[in-house]
Amino acid sequence: MAKITLKVNGEQHSAEAEDRTLLANFLRDELKLTGTHIGCDTSQCGACTVHVDGRAVKSCTMLAAQAEGCEVVTIEGLAKNGKLHPAQAAFTECHALQCGFCTPGMIMTTAALIKEHPAPTDEQIVHGLEGNLCRCTGYLNIVKAVKRAAELQKAK
């Protein structure tokens, strides 16, 4: 066991955890931030995507201990002052989900993607979402939503 201290969604958190604790489990079980979903648990599906120091990573494939001292943003931390992040607004507007299980990861990846590519092409979107799987195959609306998210971000 070790004490892990990290900043999550702008707030400093400390909790005891076993060294083998994954960041996804730490967020869900210790910090009760259950918006981060664990889909496949084999590093494929990306439902667990969060930002660590500004980069999209799969939190099921990172130890909580590796995030010690880092700044983590989860889906719960995207909206600011009650206003949805452009990616969240766009997913809602475009109905870019069916069951919604993959959505937190899709949105976190989208938020990183439109930061890197403020006006993404279809190819950049498809390539950029390679680490996120949607078992309902709602990809058409997801791709639309990423484009819309970029527009909303620009209009902000």
């Binding site: 590093s43 990306g46 995507t49 980069r55 999209a56 990573v57 799969k58 494939t61 990172m62 990846t109 990183a112 993607l113 950029g128 390679e130 680490g131 996120n132």
Partner: peptide, 9 residues
């Protein structure tokens, strides 16, 4: 390589 999340780690 892999996907964006993999390339970030």
């Amino acid at each position: 390589i892999g996907d964006p999340q993999v390339r970030n780690r």
